[in-house]
Design a protein around this nucleic acid. Sequence first.
DNA 1: TCTATCGGACACTCAAAACT
DNA 2: GTTTTGAGTGTCCGATAGAA
Length: 358
Amino acid sequence: MTNGPPMLAHPSGLPPMQHHDINGQPAKRKQVKNACTNCQKACKKCDDARPCPRCVKYGIADSCVNSVRKERKKGIKRGPYKRRQKSGKFRKGRHGRSYPTQQYASAMRAPTLPYGFPTNLNQYGQPAYDAYSAHYYKDQMVAPQYNVVNPMYPQMAYPVLMQGQGDGGAPPPPGSHPQPHAATYQQQQQQQQQHTSLPQHYGNMVQHQPQSYQQPSEQPNGYQQQQQASTTNATAAAASDERSPVLKSEAMTPMPSASTSSGTSSSPPESTVGGAEENVDANKFAGLSQLCTAALHQDSSTSQESQQQPSSTVAQEQQPSGQEPATAPAAAPTPASDAAPQESKGDETSSGQEPAQQ
DNA sequence: TCTATCGGACACTCAAAACT
DNA sequence: GTTTTGAGTGTCCGATAGAA
């Protein structure tokens, strides 16, 4: 591929992305509001329909559920803005990424991430899910998706796809989604109907949904079997992985160190600002890292004991509580092949930043 | 040949800051 | 109260590697 959006007509006949706008310029890439967990993990293109074509193609339509979006951080202090000229001298837009000078950007960032991270920036600890869900997904609520009974509500913790019951179980709209895998899709529909009637009340989904996945499945491929076989382990592992956002947020914010800056590609290199500051920062980081290392040693002695427990045991301990809204969704429906590597990746990040918890 | 994985570019969203 | 800006967070393109 060369330049421009390589988006061709969707193989499944979905509405293709815009190739070019009216002016003949390369059109922006179109994104779905919320990719399913499978596509998200695979970093592949998803669709608004559930199951998405990719999941249908791979026979994992059962696990095609909307992914959970993290809550946006709040309370981030920002430096004074430099009002740009009307002509747009500083910034062409998001896509041009022509931001103001790095000095200015760094100066703005400096108060944003102080070393003693203010504890009032509880971006993930605050129980703001209700307002968040009602606000953030307003678009999806206005425009309900086919086959998705509940568009993603984080507090539901478990979006469940059901055969379109409200509209008579109709398959996805032919106009927007002419299923090339019509037979497969019908099979999926039938299989979904064979599942136990999923709870109409969303509040109980966390408890009910995993059972539906443990039913003997008619999936012809081994993918689902593998998925089912590893449901318990994956659930436990993913449950621990779901906590990673919290750990990450807690771990990353106090330490705007090299690990943090390198983790975010969008952050401009602060090293270009000044060498003296960098040295001071390096010293601070070194000191912090020592402290964190010491803290980690203490924690590791205790955490290792808990880690030696079987993962299934951990899952059983965590699931009944159901207090964490974001825990369940990514846990159960995730295919095993996808779950394992992602966990490791998430663990790496979280474990690497763990010392910062102190 | 197909699929999984993954880095990174790009898109979307919204709170904070600036403006009226 | 409205608009603009900056950045957090998401999607997914495309390269690569491994498996079948």
